[in-house]
Nucleic acid binder design. Structure first.
Lengths: 190, 190
DNA sequence: TACATCTTTCAGAAATTTCTGAAACTAGAG
DNA sequence: CTCTAGTTTCAGAAATTTCTGAAAGATGTA
């Protein structure tokens, strides 16, 4: 691996973290390299800089493509494929979350739905189903929220995130505004 | 494996998803079983119901304990350890997020901080560092938000999540309230 | 057509992770 | 102290994942 020390440390870290993030070392390193590279890279650049075999890099790139995490581009008079990550890091995060949801959440959601359709035979099954229902509701709530948030413009999103718990203050204010003197809420609120 | 079909399907699913979630099959199945079991279980119950070896279950339970995901409890006149998950599923989610952050985000944050302290030698390193800085800022923003949110009471949290993008409406309202006629913001905002 | 350049596939080697059974360990009861 | 009922550890077997080199495929050029 021939990289400036700073870059190398970054790339190696992403390789190590790869396994914790459910991708492998090669894929982690390739992505890290693409992310910090000032220019698009071709597969052979990666082979040279990371020291993996050509085929390993090829498979890693396929994997990244299946995650929609890289852009493929070409240069005039050059048959090679060049790869980059989006310049906008928020775009990267959005894609990452979207894909992880697709792989890590959606299958569970659909199994839960399926199992909740069934009629429980025993008390044990009934209890199991209650527990699954709780889980299903929670995941649906989170997904609903996510589905709203992902449509927000980045600027708004940043604004919201920066506020953190201050949103709560606003909610409390809203509650005061819309709550009748006796403590009950107005009809519109729920 | 001797379990009611409904329970079995659930448990098997969590086993399969285990690898995508960075835990293994055994751990996934054990947790699923504990989650839907109406009563606390001891290790031998799990051996019987899941068909793993005793030692495998033991290691799986240790792993779950290291994630703070199970509670250990004892019965009078019984030396065995019994295990459960918290009744409150929100508590489970909170723990899960906390632990994943600890393992999947914090190490990256600290490497980034470290690398950003260094003085870049070349233009390439300078560019790499800029890119790392973007990443660092984004992660800090998310962590700051998370740090606020995790302290919220569950009821408030649910309220917030249910609102989804409606929060945006409130923000816009707030903007209107605090924005001077000319379009500039008041000093307090920003 | 033959050739050059680049990419992909794939069988098997290498490495890593998971799982098991046997042995070691722990702590209360007699 | 010894027995018993439990838990943990650990070396190696089994399974899975990752990685490689060689071969095949694709595509543009002469």
């Amino acid at each position: 691996m021939k990289l400036p020390p700073l870059v190398q440390a970054f790339v190696l870290h992403f390789g190590e973290m790869g396994s914790r993030w459910g991708i492998n070392r090669t894929v982690g390193q390739i992505y890290a390299l693409l992310y910090i590279a000032p220019e698009p890279l071709c597969a052979d650049d990666m082979v040279e800089q990371l020291g993996f075999s050509r085929s390993n890099v090829s498979i890693g790139l396929k994997e990244l493509q299946s995650w929609n995490l890289v852009r493929l581009l070409h240069r005039p008079d050059d048959r090679r494929d060049f790869y980059t990550t989006p310049d906008d890091i928020w775009q990267i995060v959005r894609t990452l979350v979207e894909e992880r949801k697709k792989r890590e959440v959606d299958p569970t959601l659909s199994i839960l739905r399926e199992l909740l359709m069934q009629t429980p035979g025993t008390a044990e099954e009934r209890h199991a189903q209650d527990r699954m229902r709780e889980m299903h509701e929670l995941i649906e709530l989170l997904c609903g929220w996510y589905d709203d948030v992902r449509r927000m413009e980045t600027e708004r999103l940043v604004q919201l995130l920066s506020m953190g718990a201050k949103v709560q203050k606003i909610l409390e204010m809203k509650d005061r505004l819309f709550t009748l003197p006796g403590g009950r809420r107005t009809e519109k609120e729920g």
